[in-house]
């Protein structure tokens, strides 16, 4: 069986459907599982998403789940859940040999052949943000990536093996207590930990294929072109999947809320892709989903605000101490 999964909340289901539809359109032999950090409840009709299927997060038994949703934001929980869904799927489907993860805000434009090939000689595949120097201080800059991680966890691939399960379990365990979005403490959800993957685990492939995981962070080394109704990267590799991180139809003229380097004026090459994506997520009902609250969302996140204040005090004191003890 051929399986991919994603993880999201109800609010991102139009994006998840767009990702899954585009994946299956080019790869009809694949199934997509949507790992839901939310409850389907009465709001979501799973039939609207067929043939894709759902697994609700409560079903996969994350240890101390109550505590996890208490201390983490919805975004953090969605990231923490990633390795646990992977583990669950490997356990559920005993004939599953290869498992791929894709973020919900990805869209496919081609077959997965070049992605599948990555696992032929490796057990774990991670995706590098970029492979050439990124000059200048505009965001994203090198510092941002040193905070957030060298590799982008919007895409991962695992071959069933002792080593990949060892990685998934190690990763999940760290995330239970250290999955915050807190740069000052060496944490950025699930992503920063993956910096260690090539060092601490065997048979890890760092994927540098220019047609994979194209996103604003690698625009400086990747240009989009069209030939025979196909998108190409740098006129050499067919575009397989594009990552629309930080993009939404709410501000269709902004490439990503997380970057300030490019606009559609300076990068007209990427514009048709975003326009196509925009149409797809709108036709999949993004307007109806985007404001749905997460079932685990706490109306008052004041404890988190307090936590922020506490962290700030801790930081200031630590900085003072560092200076004094110097």
């Amino acid at each position: 069986m051929k399986l991919c999964y994603t993880v999201c909340t109800n609010s991102h289901l139009a994006k998840a459907k767009t990702m899954a539809d585009s994946l299956v359109k080019h790869n009809p032999d694949y199934q997509v599982v949507i790992g839901l950090v939310d409850k389907l409840g009465a709001v979501i009709n799973p039939a609207d998403f067929a043939p894709h299927t759902f697994v609700e997060v409560e079903k996969i038994q994350i240890p101390d789940f109550e505590e996890v949703i208490r201390k983490y934001t919805t975004f953090e929980v969605s990231c923490v859940a990633k390795p646990y869904f992977a583990q669950y799927l490997f356990e559920q489907f005993s004939d599953l040999e290869r498992l791929y993860y894709f973020d919900a805000d990805i869209c496919f434009f081609n077959k997965l052949t070049s992605v599948e090939r990555l696992l032929d000689a490796h057990e774990i595949v991670i995706s590098v943000h970029f492979t050439t120097d990124l000059e200048g201080q505009q965001e994203p800059n090198l510092r941002n990536l040193l905070n957030a991680g060298l590799y982008n966890t919007g895409f991962l691939a695992f071959k069933r093996s002792v080593e990949s399960l060892r990685f998934i379990q190690w990763w999940g365990k760290r995330l239970l207590t250290e999955g915050y979005h807190d740069f000052a403490q060496g944490m950025f959800v699930d992503q920063l930990w993956v910096n260690f993957a090539p060092l601490l685990f065997k048979n890890v492939l760092i994927d540098t294929h220019s047609g994979h995981n194209v996103g604003y962070w690698n625009f400086h080394e990747r240009v989009v072109s069209q030939k025979n109704n196909q998108y190409y990267i740098n006129n050499e590799q067919p575009l397989v999947f594009f990552h629309f991180s930080g993009y939404g139809p709410e501000s269709p003229d902004t490439i990503s809320q997380y970057q300030e380097r490019y606009s559609f004026d300076t990068r007209p090459d990427v514009k048709p892709i975003f326009e196509e994506y925009n149409r797809l997520i709108i036709s999949n009902g993004h307007q109806n989903y985007k404001d749905l609250p997460c079932a685990f969302y706490k109306k008052s996140y004041s404890h988190q605000k307090l936590r922020g204040l506490r962290r700030r005090i801790i930081l200031i004191l630590r900085q003072l101490l560092r200076q004094l003890e110097n």
């Binding site: 050439t132 201080q137 510092r143 060298l150 910096n195 560092r322």
Partner: peptide
């Protein structure tokens, strides 16, 4: 010369942290 500070919150640690990029670049 730009980012050689000690400042974890902003992704800086003297000459050392940026060595993370070495095998990539």
């Amino acid at each position: 010369a730009e980012d050689g500070y000690v400042n974890f919150c902003r992704g800086m640690f003297v000459d050392q942290l940026c060595l993370n990029f070495l095998p990539v670049f």
